[in-house]
């Protein structure tokens, strides 16, 4: 019940920020929409969200942001290079890597981070394996692939979420 109330408050605050109005009809509409969203999708919310407010986790979250942003910028130049190159240097394929992260939310963030970083796109996550579409395969050894794709994020995400 407490979890649902917290979710409701978060959603309602986001609604209020988006509408930027404290008129009664807007507030009531926000209450109705947030309540419906919580009732329908409450199970999808990560259960351990309150734990993430711990200062040590927030600190590692702040450390992670520039690392992540740098990877995103690199990935964009990588794609732009392949797009504009006359012969399109790509060696695509789907590889399988293993993650040691335990919680669902950590794996979600890992999968999303991998998608936004150079040449990789998460296709599926089954148990502790991730299937990743890689635009330029430079190694066919699963251990090497895991090291190249997953580990640069894992060390931060483990500190934030696990």
């Amino acid at each position: 019940m407490l979890k649902k109330l917290l979710e409701f408050l978060i959603l309602w605050i986001i609604w209020t920020l988006l509408t930027w109005s404290l008129a009664l009809p807007d507030i009531l509409a926000g209450v109705v929409v947030s309540a419906i969203a919580v009732l329908l999708f409450s199970d999808l919310f990560p259960a351990e969200i309150g734990r993430l407010l711990h200062p040590r986790r927030l600190f590692w979250g702040l450390v992670y942001l520039p690392v992540f942003f740098w990877q995103v910028v690199k990935s964009n130049f990588d794609v732009a290079y392949r797009v504009f190159h006359p012969t399109m240097p790509i060696r695509p394929g789907i590889v399988k890597v293993r993650t040691s992260l335990r919680s669902e939310i950590a794996r979600t963030f890992l999968a999303n981070s991998i998608t936004l970083t150079p040449g990789t796109l998460t296709v599926d996550c089954v148990d502790d394996h991730l299937y990743i579409h890689w635009i330029n395969i430079i190694s066919e050894d699963p251990e090497e692939e895991t090291r190249l794709i997953v580990e640069k994020f894992e060390k931060y995400l483990r500190k934030i979420f696990d």
Partner: peptide
Amino acid sequence: EGSIMDRYREDQEGETES
């Protein structure tokens, strides 16, 4: 057709794994 490998198909879209 120029793709190097497809581990996802080899594992039948994760069915063998589970």
